[in-house]
Design a protein around this nucleic acid. Structure first.
Lengths: 212, 212
DNA sequence: CAGGCGATGTATCGAACCGATACATCGCAG
DNA sequence: CTGCGATGTATCGGTTCGATACATCGCCTG
């Protein structure tokens, strides 16, 4: 899961750990809170061992003498994705197994939707919708059947959870409708960010991002 | 975290693992998805080792002969909370450290609010509110400052996250206001599930709850 | 100009937690 | 009487987290 996220970020530019973590946090910050170093560094080592990324010391300044960035040892380490890593990313981003629909994994996949083809996007959105619908139904059952046996606070918690689930289903419905119509998400009323309106929005496989 | 949850559930009745998990899932289901056995059983063993719960074989039926519940071995194991466990629960439920405000821990604490005194409830709600507000501000920064550098999907994700954060802050505000006014949460308009309406809702200290 | 302090930066350790899996029994529908 | 889904206990490997340690940088203050 972190594997996909790290590869996806490194796809845009080589980076060192600290920066990587910041990017990860803002990119995934909407669903997940933050990534800890205790997860990040092991993941980097795993990826490196598998040959998906390389560890490269940074460019040696501009002149002849290498100014030791941090006088002795502990120079900053820059990680870059390899060709195998790109393949691996494509593989991971395309697969939508059941585990893709739990909270954190869905957020990660969603964050890389601009690098995912529409078919896969739809599969993931619909899978997630089913998940959230099931959760919603479960909460409704509890509230309908067992309301009198629960204390006021537990009840309030269930109610809040139910509301959130209902809202997310609606959000997903909208996204799915948008996908089907071939558009790109974004607020139509405010500014129509859709410059061409041709309804493309996928087939952006090379590596750059045409999105506004 | 699971420790608190398990003790809280066992406080209501002795139970075996499977049932415990179900209770846990409905009680905490609004914030957390589900508890896996890979977490539950180690937690039970930890609690048992610490003396907070005891493992008791179930009542031996009604007659003289003990019908081996599951012919040979693997009888169902019933766990019950001890006096030390109750003390431990009171200790855990009262403390509102910073870690209390991340998603899962907050949900657990909230679920046991009917066993928490109002002072602590307020501290926890306000701490959570500050957390969510910070998150909300972070997302606003991203959306305001870096919107043009993000693709449409990432943007949509941030927007959804922001909306959820705003909604939760509002929810928390309401709860805090309700607490301050000495009432119990619940929908006043719909059906007043509040049988007595005396506005009590705290002071149900099975053990003791020291007011700050 | 000393020195402190917050941001940048790399890294590890123990513990918690999860997903998958194995195994066993019960009740009941076909 | 057979198979299958719910009930039930339990472990294993692996991921992730929280805390912590260590080191350098730039900047502000006394």
């Amino acid at each position: 899961m972190l594997e996909l996220a790290v590869l996806g970020i490194l796809l845009e530019a080589p980076m060192h750990g600290y920066e990587l973590r910041k990017q990860l946090t803002t990119k995934l910050g909407a669903f997940r809170a933050a990534i800890s170093y205790g997860s990040l560094y092991p993941t980097l080592r795993r990826l490196q061992a598998a040959g998906y990324i390389t560890e490269a010391s940074p460019e040696e300044g501009t002149s002849s003498a290498d100014i030791p960035l941090m006088t002795s040892r502990r120079g900053r380490v820059v990680y870059a994705i390899t060709a195998e890593g790109k393949e691996r990313f494509a593989e991971l981003v395309a697969q939508a197994g059941p585990e893709t629909f739990d909270d954190p994994a869905f957020g990660v996949h969603f964050a890389f939707f601009s690098r995912t083809d529409r078919q896969t996007r739809l599969r993931i959105l619909e899978g997630r919708r089913r998940r959230v619908e099931e959760r919603r139904e479960g909460l409704r059952q509890v509230l309908a059947r067992a309301a009198e046996r629960l204390d006021a606070y537990t009840l309030e918690l269930q109610r809040h959870g139910l509301e959130a689930a209902e809202r997310e289903v609606r959000w997903l419905e909208e996204l799915i409708a948008t996908e089907r119509s071939g558009r790109t998400p974004g607020r139509p009323p405010g500014q129509s960010g859709d410059a061409d309106g041709t309804g493309r929005g996928e087939e952006l496989p090379p590596s750059e991002i045409p999105e506004r």
